[in-house]
Simulated assay, not measured.
Amino acid sequence: MIGCEISGGLGNQFFRYAYARCLHERRRKQGMNDELAINYAAIENHGFAGDLNDFRITEHSKYNCRRVLLEKGSFLQIIVYAVVTRVFSVVGGLCKCSALDLKCRILGAFGIVISEDPDNERLYCNMKVPNLFPIGSFENVNYFNEIKEILSKEFTPVCDGIPANKKLYDAIRSENTVCLAVRRGDFMKEANKKNFYVCDLTYFQKAVNYIRQNVENPTFIVFSNDIAWVKANLKIGGGKCLL
Rank of each mutant, 00 (worst) to 15 (best):
S224P: 00
L70I: 05
N233W: 07
Y124Q: 09
D200H: 06
M32Q: 14
C97E: 14
F220G: 03
M188N: 15
E146F: 05
Y124L: 10
G50E: 03
E175C: 03
T219V: 15
G161E: 11
D226I: 00
A18T: 11
P134A: 02
L52E: 10
I211N: 08
S89T: 04
I221A: 13
R86M: 14
E5G: 06
C104S: 15
L10E: 01
E5T: 12
G11K: 08
S7K: 02
R28V: 01
V90A: 10
D101V: 09
M32D: 07
M188S: 09
A181F: 02
K189T: 05
A228D: 09
E190M: 06
Y17Q: 02
N192V: 01
H46F: 15
A207C: 13
N126L: 03
F144A: 05
K128H: 14
R16F: 00
M188T: 07
E25H: 09
P163Q: 11
R184M: 13
G47M: 13
D119L: 09
T202E: 07
H24V: 01
G9H: 05
N142Q: 07
V182S: 04
K167W: 07
C65Y: 01
K235A: 06
Y124E: 04
F110S: 08
Y124F: 15
F88S: 03
V230S: 09
I172N: 02
L76N: 05
V91L: 09
Y19W: 08
E44P: 01
L132T: 12
P218T: 02
K166Q: 15
R122F: 12
E154A: 04
A171I: 05
G8T: 03
R173P: 00
Y143I: 02
I79H: 03
Y169N: 05
P218E: 06
V84H: 11
I147C: 08
T58R: 08
G161F: 12
R212Q: 05
Y143W: 14
A42L: 00
N209E: 06
G93R: 15
G92K: 10
R27K: 13
R28C: 06
E71D: 07
K235Q: 03
